[in-house]
Design a protein around this nucleic acid. Sequence first.
DNA 1: GTCTATACTGAGATAGAC
DNA 2: GTCTATCTCAGTATAGAC
Lengths: 192, 192
Amino acid sequence: MADKTTRERIVAEADRLFYERGFELTSFSDIADAVGISRGNFYYHFKSKDEILDAVIGKRMMSTSGMLEEWESQSDSPSERIKDFIRIVVTNRAQIIRHGCPVGTLCSELAKIGHPAQPQSNQLFVLFRTWLCHQFVLLGHETDADSLAMHVLAFSQGIALLAQAFQDERFIRREAERMCAWLDGLADEVRV
Amino acid sequence: MADKTTRERIVAEADRLFYERGFELTSFSDIADAVGISRGNFYYHFKSKDEILDAVIGKRMMSTSGMLEEWESQSDSPSERIKDFIRIVVTNRAQIIRHGCPVGTLCSELAKIGHPAQPQSNQLFVLFRTWLCHQFVLLGHETDADSLAMHVLAFSQGIALLAQAFQDERFIRREAERMCAWLDGLADEVRV
DNA sequence: GTCTATACTGAGATAGAC
DNA sequence: GTCTATCTCAGTATAGAC
């Protein structure tokens, strides 16, 4: 963190604050304070708040791509890879209960306020959707791979939203297991 | 609308605007303009913006209770009643694609900004949760009724969130059908 | 009850010194 | 590159006339 450029530090803190407080309610002062620079200095690096949002989304796109590639290379079966995805909600349960899903809450907020960066934030969903779709094709579900990918994605979003509302960790675990069991049933279908 | 009191008109317009634009981004001016009164007049009826939010949530609680009671009296089987719930996402698809789920987006926003009215908005979820739980008990799933209720609730939230992001009406229909089929499978389990 | 006028605050953004 | 000072605007909220 210490040897990062100021720009990188701004993006990192904005990334965190946009997740924790939401985009609208994070002010320049909030980010400036977190980074430890003055508000004025800000505009040397970014022309507007929207430009910071673009950078934050870009950063999230990069890290998400990296994570998906890692799953692709580490797990050997597509069904294990899909489970890697399902298990994020369990792994990140503490943060999800506090602040929701980083992707879902951002897309939801930008959609509601009609923000111009909406299509870009949706690309984060597209990243997961495409990857999951690919895994389902490998599983032998060529015809409805995309539909299944959307199903898994919807599920994870529903879990995250309700887990936050009810502050319920056990609910996350229970639903993740249910989803994994459903996936196993799906894999059996193909074998038969 | 014409013969409603000013207070009722304020709550009605605030209800609509909070749904369409979100709570934070709806200003007093927005509501005042929509109602057709001056901003000053506002404070005769409500002391603050938070007080309007309380009134809006109260109104939604009333109308939701009414809807659930209606389903309870009209459909004869619990499984048909749960399907009534599942079908809301299809019935309200146009609005959901534009603005998301009224309950989910409000709870999500209030949770993110740490608003004091968060527990009250969550009561809207509790209303559905309790009602669904009751239906699953009637279906013969006494032991895991609440878990199933949360499952259905999570599903509807996931559908609403992704439908808004991807602006996809067919996805809503497809997932609602999938959920109904799952429910039929569940009812068969009990019969056997 | 409803209005106009206005106070006060914090937001995003700019200018210019260092 | 970073700072301070400042501008502008929109938001919530209040005071007081009608």
